[in-house]
């Protein structure tokens, strides 16, 4: 079971109170982009074993979208943070480094 803490209401809830929203920090490619960029945006998602960044929504709570950094092997949640950011906060990255030295995920490490 996954326990997530919503950064907006501070509720520590279990997975079924939330709704998963796929990969985090996607850069949107729309009109004017190349076919490759648009294809990548729509279909090329990572599915790592280990450190992963996802979007979640507190669907049955405050309704807000947020980000979660977690580990797909251990189900450990390294941290959750607001959606209004384009990269994971430093404290969460440090926490991941302490557990999984040398980790990388897309452009982050």
């Amino acid at each position: 079971m996954l326990i997530l803490e919503c950064p907006y209401c501070g509720v520590k809830g279990e997975e079924t109170e939330f709704a998963g929203g796929g990969e985090a920090h996607l850069k949107r490619f729309g009109p004017g982009s190349s076919d490759d960029e648009f294809h990548g945006y729509l279909f090329s998602k990572v599915n790592p074993k280990g450190v992963h960044f996802e979007r979640w929504r507190h669907a049955h709570g405050c309704g807000k979208w947020f980000h979660a950094a977690r580990d797909t092997i251990t189900l450990e949640v390294y941290g959750t943070y607001p959606a209004q950011t384009t990269e994971p906060p430093k404290d969460i990255k440090d926490k991941i480094s302490a557990k999984r030295p040398g980790w990388s995920w897309r452009e982050f490490a």
Partner: peptide, 8 residues
Amino acid sequence: RTRMAQVA
């Protein structure tokens, strides 16, 4: 605010 069985 939470989930009660299948509803909010």
